[in-house]
């Protein structure tokens, strides 16, 4: 394998031109070679990282073929289910989950709008939102514990401004107060769960959120009790 070859140091690329000026004799030469060898290892690491990113990308890919055949709602539902999440269409009381025998059922619902999505703990990221943004009737969105959801992604939720009533971004490790600030677009929001989101001063952020979304109940970020801080180590204000 190429990776192995690189690790073993048999590479095809020509060696670096000797660095100018300095040299420390044989020991320096050996150390330099070791340094280069580890440069190769870094390249292998970079491949590993790229592979991870490639996987993440393919799981978040936009499924335009589904949309073309079954419409936006089914496409969003299938995406969510394939991420291990749950879906509720308008008029339904129960969630469709990946465990249930969902395929025929979902594909029949092509003209029924999706009203609720549970994507908690899924690998959803900015690109994956491509599958969701066409939804026009979404009221409930659970994104809690999504490890790849970041502030850039939160910035895309404005498209649900007219409909979204409940949102959870609880325990999303990459969400910060900067992303939360974009939620002012969600005029209909009534419940926002931000428990465990890392922000510098939870009390202040909560006040700012409540001021920005006056009709919305903000959950999980309590004045100074430290739930919002990464370690809970911050002292509550006296």
């Amino acid at each position: 394998m190429a990776a192995l070859r690189a690790v073993l140091g048999c590479r095809g690329a020509p060696a670096l031109r000797p660095p100018p000026g300095q040299s420390r004799g044989a020991a320096g030469g050996l150390l330099q070679r070791l340094g280069q060898w580890f440069y190769e290892v870094e390249v292998v690491m970079a491949w590993g990282e790229r592979l991870r990113q490639h996987r993440l990308r393919s799981r978040n890919a936009y499924r335009s073929f589904l949309r073309d055949t079954y419409g936006e709602n089914v496409a969003a539902a299938v995406f969510t289910l394939s991420c291990g999440g749950g879906v509720r269409f308008e008029g339904q009381d129960s969630w469709i989950r990946p465990e249930s025998h969902w395929r025929p059922e979902v594909l029949r619902l092509r003209d029924v709008p999706v009203v609720a999505l549970d994507l908690s703990g899924s690998p959803l990221n900015y690109n994956g939102l491509d599958n969701l943004v066409p939804l026009t009737r979404l009221q409930h969105l659970d994104l809690s514990g999504c490890p790849h959801l970041d502030d850039w992604a939160l910035g895309r939720l404005h498209v649900f401004g007219d409909t979204l009533q409940e949102l959870s971004v609880a325990r999303c490790p990459r969400v910060t107060e900067r992303g939360l600030a974009t939620l002012h677009h969600l005029r209909e929001l009534r419940r926002l769960d931000v428990e465990g989101v890392r922000v510098p001063s939870p009390g202040l952020v909560r006040i700012l959120l409540e001021e920005m979304l006056p009709d919305c109940q903000v959950l999980g970020m309590d004045l100074g009790d430290g739930t919002g801080t990464p370690t809970g180590g911050e002292k509550p204000p006296a």
Partner: peptide, 8 residues
């Protein structure tokens, strides 16, 4: 190892 290197 890199830390052992002369400033290259």
């Amino acid at each position: 190892l890199k830390d052992q290197l002369p400033a290259l």
